[in-house]
Write a protein that binds this DNA or RNA. Sequence first.
DNA 1: TATCGCTGTTAAAAAAAGTTAAGCCCCAAC
DNA 2: GTTGGGGCTTAACTTTTTTTAACAGCGATA
Lengths: 229, 229
Amino acid sequence: MTKKTKILLAEDDENLGRLLHTFLVNKGFDAVLAENGKIAFRLFGEGDIDFCIFDVMMPEMDGFTLAKEIRETDKKVPILFLTAKSMKEDKLEGFSIGADDYLSKPFSMEELLARITAILRRIEPHTHAESEVLTIGTIKYEPESRVLHLSDGLKKLTTKENELLHLLVKNENEILDRNATLRLIWGDDNYFNGRSMDVYIAKLRKLLKEDPAIEIMNVHGKGFKLVAK
Amino acid sequence: MTKKTKILLAEDDENLGRLLHTFLVNKGFDAVLAENGKIAFRLFGEGDIDFCIFDVMMPEMDGFTLAKEIRETDKKVPILFLTAKSMKEDKLEGFSIGADDYLSKPFSMEELLARITAILRRIEPHTHAESEVLTIGTIKYEPESRVLHLSDGLKKLTTKENELLHLLVKNENEILDRNATLRLIWGDDNYFNGRSMDVYIAKLRKLLKEDPAIEIMNVHGKGFKLVAK
DNA sequence: TATCGCTGTTAAAAAAAGTTAAGCCCCAAC
DNA sequence: GTTGGGGCTTAACTTTTTTTAACAGCGATA
């Protein structure tokens, strides 16, 4: 049994939001509805989102800004924008951010479904995570169940350990921006959260120490980078 | 080891061109710089180009004409345009030709890099990890893991040491422009960053001292040049 | 050769990150 | 309601990395 595709839906119009949510759940998706961009960003940080549908115009944080923030730490998750009308400017801006598709209101539910399935089909099959098992060097890691397979048994990670490690692994060999990570996991990139993050980096290094090929390296003033030779 | 992505860069502004070229090479791409559209077109005919970045306004042959010519024989190679300012007309014309993205000057290097990787991700599943081992004289150097193999053991380089050395090695026997390097690594070519760079040059000289054939020589008023006799 | 800007070098200061432990808060068990 | 443990944050201290300062030497140019 494969895991359901989890869709993050950001729509401020209450009626449309509920309608979409119900439709998606009916079609077999696991959908979460956020009423504005800020809430959506927080939800993205928590859950394991497979797909995004963002209304462009929303209060608090618009769809484009939201997408930009998310792209700081996740370069792959598909994003589909909903625009109020056929706006060429918006389309251009959206595609440059890394949008996967567009839908101009009004649209039919069937059309939306067609776009979603089309995007999901052309993405690597393993991307819709079905209790995925990742590999860090020689160590197995299951982000869903927050378990690390160490030589002396299983290690159950805490929420923060898991969120940080998952981000590092997803961005393997790339710099994980310090402030973007803080905003995503801690909600704010202030000094103390930064120190907290450093403490977690130390924890993770200790856990991953058993494979000497794994290194969480610091990039001074920028962030951290996970490399496994 | 995977083949590097070869980028054709057409930019008539010499400073920007070199900066872009250096940046792209530093980021692990195989980049070729053309100073106008005609030269770029000839280069495209010779090498097998994986990616194009064209300035819209250039002498001899502008970016759009160049793209049209190339699209005659190649419908797939990604093309990213650089526009002088946010020009809506140009954007529309470019997309109709088959542009993949746009960037309006001024833009940040990081933004450019983000766009390129976003497009490459769409085109083909791409492998980023390539653990290259470079050689400076008799000294082995691994820029990815920031390690220098010295006679008295491994030396882990700091972020800045590594960035600077990597640039020097990639430009071996060529002058590494002082200001371009400063903008690339330090983000700004002001006086203090310049002094900081000089300090790092001194550090690197000390590290590489064990091979007398290696020299980081100064080119007064221009920059530095790494030579290994 | 006098001068001024550029570079070489070392040391001190400042900023960022590594580490360990103490403190706090929430929640569940008693 | 109290207690205790787990998880996270804050604190304190250390180390590393980077920047700034200070001074000496060098190079081009008048």
